[in-house]
Design a protein around this nucleic acid. Sequence first.
RNA 1: GGGGUGGUAGUUCAGUUGGCUAGAACGCUGCCCUGUCACGGCAGAGGCCGCGGGUUCGAGUCCCGUCCACCCCGCCA
Length: 587
Amino acid sequence: MAEQLGSLARTHTCGALRPADVGRGAVLLGWVHRVRDMGSLLFFDIRDRHGLTQVVIEGNEALLETAKRARSEFVVAVIGEVERRSDDTINKELPTGEVEVRASELRILNEAKTPPFSIAEDQNVSEETRLKYRYLDLRRPQLQHNIGLRHRLTMALRKYFDEQGFYEIETPILTKSTPEGARDFLVPARVHPGEFYALPQSPQIFKQILMIAGFDRYVQIARCFRDEALRADRQLEFTQVDLEMSFATPPLVFEIVEGALAACFREIGVGIRRPFRRMPYAEAISKYGSDKPDLRFGLEIQDFGPLFKASPFGIFREAVEHGGTVRGFVIPNAAKYSRREVDELVDLAKQAGAGGLIYTRYTGEGVQVSAKAIGEEGARKALEAAGANKEDLLVLASGAPDHASKILGQLRLLVAKKENLVPAGKWELCWLTDFPLFNWNADEKRWDSVNHPFTAPREEDLHMLESDPGKVLAKAYDVILNGWELGGGSIRIHDRETQAKVFRLLGLSDEDARNRFGFFLESLEYGTPPHGGLALGLDRICALLAGETSIREVIPFPKTTQAVDLMCNAPSTVDPKQLRELSIKNI
RNA sequence: GGGGUGGUAGUUCAGUUGGCUAGAACGCUGCCCUGUCACGGCAGAGGCCGCGGGUUCGAGUCCCGUCCACCCCGCCA
């Protein structure tokens, strides 16, 4: 039976006691971690989020009897005296290991069912089980640490932005659909049947309006919602460190954001080099086949197009003649790959969307190439141009330049993993710059914003805005860490005229534009300062700095890839009465 | 929507060419133990082999379907 806490107050946390406390009385409150019962002598560790302390029960029959009832995860109060452990019983693994508490009283405050998995043992548990019993999983050291780190990072960021003169300002959760390009979560408006609020995909328009309102420097730890497929680095709801500055230039944004990230890294005791490397978008695509290049290892993609342009080498010449190219990268020490291993590479490339993958390497006498049509001579030229040596394997893909690179980019990541080329403990930060402003949408026969429609074009490209929109580059930038996009932002359009032009290019009629964000267009006409900003993915920062490969490990209550909360079983059906009230009908 | 991996005691897993009365470790229960700290020793309980169908004398194992978790593509900054 459980006993009451009464007016009992904790004197120390379970991680606090040290030799200096020897001789003092202590009241510890926490969970029973592990019991070691020796008959008439019994030890157990009491645990809270601060640590473990060993409790000794000895020489008191009633006390011993209570202690023998204790099981893992019971909640207990220990009242006793701090003792120094004899030299031969010190536990060097524990910060509290030089002392123990000799209990004079033990209260079982609450019993616990045997948990489905052990909190004390560091065992692998399937994510399904962990998510169902998230409250138990959160008790375990890994998540205790990750959630603690998340707190520290959040505090470090708040402190940093405060020091830089930013105001933290909240923006609405119930709002209007913003043009971020993802599916919106909608909330029916009860008092306006047939109308809906949208949850914010980001506070984009609000933060720009705050600039118009004169708030100069804004930051928000903002929850954002996007109804899209979930991934290791994507949840339906996620947290952005959203910021915006008036009179911002790209260098100013870089400086502020680099400072913020440096403050985060300081929390894990890592110093980072500043300024970060900068790379044009086009280079990232061609050399790494990705808009979030992982720069921790080489395997850089090279272009062999010119090599095959005037040469009689079948499929490659054809590709080049049709506006495509031939690209590839060298896998060091892979000449020894077996038939099965190279076939595996080809399969991976096909899974990535390649028509095929050609590989070539030096053999004892000559060169081997997986496609006869290339010819030995062509292969040799490519190997030479690539700077491959006898131990290397060169893989080649042909097609439209970006397509070839993206396939190779995916292959590059898989090869790096397979060959263990990703160094541990390395942090490669990089700015991606010079994004195109628009993408041609062939299906809809119009231009799409690469970022969002408020992104400013580079001033030197303004003259092409209407004549050659595909050539216009944006004042936009992404920050990348170890192949993860940490954040992105831009300088915004601050004049009504340019904004209207962009809307027109996006195929938005004046009427559509007015309907969707007329209020915003109007606000631009009341003295809008030039401004810009960025948003950082807090979940991703936490995950990377915690050494995790999924943001679920830094989110207390995440959802599965099927968008289900396994703990509380959301989503779920609702009472028909609620639907009626909202004028909603299932179809 | 598509591709891949997995689903067997509470948990993590093993289970060969179809022969299973389904194993191991940890956990759990009981007993013993005065210096343990992953305590130790002895004994024991615990299974709809994800679910549904099929093939077969016989299915954890083979086939079809389906559900769930994870990874990737599409989608999403």
